[in-house]
Each structure stands twice: as structure tokens, then as C-alpha cells.
Nucleic acid binder design. Sequence first.
DNA 1: ATGTTGGAGTTTCTTTAGGGAACCCCAAGA
DNA 2: TCTTGGGGTTCCCTAAAGAAACTCCAACAT
Lengths: 150, 150
Amino acid sequence: MQRTDFSEMACSIARTLDVIGEPWSPLILRDVWVGFSRFEQLQADLGISRKVLTERLNHLVDRDVLERRPYDNRPRYEYVLTDRGRELVDVLMVMVAWGDKWLAGQAGPPVLYRHHACGEISHVDLACAHCGKPMHADDIDILPGPGAAV
Amino acid sequence: MQRTDFSEMACSIARTLDVIGEPWSPLILRDVWVGFSRFEQLQADLGISRKVLTERLNHLVDRDVLERRPYDNRPRYEYVLTDRGRELVDVLMVMVAWGDKWLAGQAGPPVLYRHHACGEISHVDLACAHCGKPMHADDIDILPGPGAAV
DNA sequence: ATGTTGGAGTTTCTTTAGGGAACCCCAAGA
DNA sequence: TCTTGGGGTTCCCTAAAGAAACTCCAACAT
């Protein structure tokens, strides 16, 4: 194998990269999330090579992030997020928050998020799933877990 | 250019991918985060090609995610996170949460996070930066922002 | 019955980037 | 002067991305 396989590493980051780490995969996920669900739509919106789009879609379906579903009597298909896929969008939302903050420049963010719960234009932040307080890089200790490498 | 350039797209996900979207970059960031800061350490821990490691480190320093800093009178350098870089770790922490949930299998997660604030083993969750309530893929409306493409 | 259209991919060809191993440079210490 | 170790370069080979052309249906249209 020429490109290193991340899927067998004892690291959840590496394993997640095995799913969405290839070029274009996060953008395909984004497009499906916002409503581009068909091959032709994705190809046109992204400007991706059709060959690579095919490979990525197959991979994402293999990994149970997208589902390929017929939408017509004719052989027509659309791709929709699975539960796994919808939760992966969390990663995208954090990338958006970071990119908006550090890379948007003068023009400002390309898109805005309005939060249903409060109705405000906002963005995501990381909180502890247990106590709800902020949880960032320096707010934790890292300990070996049960699935640690031997 | 053979690989498509994401940096000019009007999308914060694409722009963020221009910074850490290449193979190995997130794992390099992870390693620097947890304390592997030198070339030899990174190369040994990751098993990455020295050529690619050089390219990635230069790119991350270019994008102001890492800082290259001498640590000896001899020509010795270590790589440390900048502010931008430390905030990028948010993305990794969400990848860990997702990977732990969906890919860890029988063995369980390879590492555990103990949150300083509450002392509990926990993981990150996404909250609205404005109201603090949960904020996920289906909890928002997406609106055009000031930096939207023309 | 034949032709056209449009979605959804394949195939083919070219260029680039990753993997691996060998090689190089330099400063300190033996 | 020789060795050692950190921190890279260089070189070659293979795999993967880009681009464009081509294929295969099923439904209309003529």
C-alpha cells in the first residue's frame, strides 16, 4: 500500500481520518448536509473529478456515513446522511468556527448559523459532556484507556 | 496544480482543510499537542516519511499553526502550538469523541480525557457559544454571511 | 422503431504527491 | 580527528488526483 492506512492505529483521530481524511470527503459531507444529494449536483458544486467523487461516495457509504438510496424508477440515486454521518457534521461545525475566526479576513464569514434554540446568530463551542463547562486542549488530562495499544 | 487548492473557496471548511486537510497533518498536530515536539520524535512515533514530515511541518509553520523554535545552542528545533494551533485542537477533540463512539469497538477508547473543571472522565460536546444549549447539525439554519461568494 | 436526453457513473491518460531508503550537514563530545 | 545524533535532502518508484472522453440505461419524443 502506498498511502499509509490509518484505520488500524490505536487512535480515534487516525480512525476518524480513515473515514473522512481523504481529500474532498469533508466537503462532500458538507454538501450532502446542506442539501446537495445527487451525483451530478455534487460534481457541479464541488468541481471534483467524477472518478474521485465515485471513489469517495463509495468509501463513505462503505463506512456507513452516507446511505445510497434510489429516488426514481429509473436507476437514479441520492446520498443521505446516516446517524453516524449526521454526528460527523460536528467535526465540520468546529472547522467552520475555526475557519471563520482565523481565516475569514475582511470579508467576514461566508455563511452564518442561526441556532434554533435561542434564535441568535452563533457558532459552536466545546463543552464537557459531563459538567457542561468549557473543555479545550488545555482543560484536560489524557489517560490511557481500555483500548490503548499494548 | 494537480491537487485542487481549497484555500480560495468561500467556505471555512475548505479553508481549514487547506491548513490541516493533507494526510498526516492532524496526527502531527495531535502529537505536538500531547508532547512530541521534535522532528525525530514525530518521525518515530508516526512512522511518517521524513520527506512528508518536513513538508507538513513547514506548511503548518507557514499557516501559523505551529512555531519552530530552537531549543539548544546546536541547530536543534522543536515545534510548539501557536494560539491558532491550540484552538485547532478543538477539531481533534471532536474527532476523538466521534471515533470513540463509532469506531472503538470492543476494546473501548484508546485514551480517556479527564476534565480539570469537574474531575470526571468525559468527552467534548457541541454547545451554542451564545446560549450554551446543544448545537448540532439539525439545530441550525444556515444563512448567507458577509463573506459569501458573489 | 429510431433518436434524444439526462443521470450516474467508467475508462484512459497525464501529472503530482506519498513511501522508503540512502545520503548530507553541523555542532558537541570522546 | 572520529563518532554521534538531530534535523533535514535527494532519489526512485508507485499510487492517487485531474481532466476529458466514453458508456449504459430508462424514459420520452418523432
